[in-house]
């Protein structure tokens, strides 16, 4: 979906805050929000891709101006209201009016040790063989998907080389909308000059992970 989150190559955002202090959280509320997300009992039909989609649908001015963990809050509040876990009125007041049903009890402090695992695997076995081989020349399709997608605008229509095939991974464009299926995933390398007119002659390449349906021969 062509929302504001798709930032690769956009201009005018100014300097990077390179002097930011190196600490996990800068404000107590940031730490609380991080912990709430990790500790919360949630509906089984939520996914990481659904969360990403809900974050990228934040109003553009809020998306660009709100602190990062405030965007988490905004995305979670929307997911909670949408799934009927709480109403917007309850989210605003912080007070529960009705009980929530159908969710397991929350993680306890003792559970955190066991839950301190890394990310789950998104690799899946599929029957179809991959269409592209390492070394193939490919062109990225011009159109993105109307819902969630991981195909950035800056790569569309550009030519690259398949650098690696990673087997099949869960396809975010479907998974974000509640349908888990997998498709071949590749790493595709692009010369910087293929992406941007001012980059002629620069020794620079950009590598993206792309699902098979994002690509055609080219």
């Amino acid at each position: 979906m062509d929302t504001i989150h798709d930032l690769g190559g956009r201009q005018g955002f100014g300097a990077i805050d390179v002097d930011e202090p190196e600490e996990a959280f800068h404000e107590p509320w940031e730490a609380r929000m991080f912990g709430i997300r990790r500790a919360m009992s949630r509906p089984a039909d939520w996914s990481l891709d659904w969360f990403r989609h809900c974050r990228e649908l934040i109003e553009p001015t809020d998306y660009l101006s709100r602190p990062y963990f405030d965007q988490w809050l905004q995305a979670y509040a929307a997911m909670i209201a949408n799934s009927g876990v709480a109403t917007i009125e309850e989210l605003a007041s912080g007070k529960a009016k009705t009980p929530v049903s159908g969710l397991p009890p929350p993680m306890t402090a003792a559970d955190v040790g066991g839950a301190r695992r890394g990310n789950p695997s998104f690799a899946r076995e599929i029957d179809e063989a991959p269409v592209f081989n390492v070394g193939d020349s490919v062109r990225v399709k011009i159109h993105g998907a109307p819902g969630h997608t991981r195909l950035p605008a800056y790569a569309r229509g550009r030519r690259g080389i398949v650098e690696a095939h990673h087997g099949a991974h869960v396809f975010p464009d479907a998974n974000a909308h509640g349908e888990e299926r997998a498709a071949p995933l590749y790493t595709v390398g692009f010369d910087m000059a293929e992406l941007w007119p001012e980059a002629q002659g620069r020794r620079e390449r950009v590598f993206l992970n792309m699902w098979e349906s994002y690509l055609e021969r080219g």
């Binding site: 959280f25 509320w29 730490a31 609380r32 929000m33 991080f34 912990g35 709430i36 990790r38 500790a39 919360m40 009992s41 949630r42 963990f69 405030d70 809050l73 979670y76 509040a77 876990v85 709480a86 309850e90 989210l91 605003a92 007041s93 912080g94 007070k95 529960a96 009980p99 929530v100 969710l103 009890p105 929350p106 993680m107 306890t108 402090a109 559970d111 955190v112």
Partner: peptide, 25 residues
């Protein structure tokens, strides 16, 4: 304030334990 309201609400709803939040932090 938004985060405080969210935590209070989810604790009251019985789907967040604040001690688990502390532990994750």
């Amino acid at each position: 304030l938004r985060v405080k309201a969210l935590e209070s609400l989810l604790v009251e709803k019985g789907i967040v334990d604040s001690e688990a939040v502390d532990a994750w932090i």
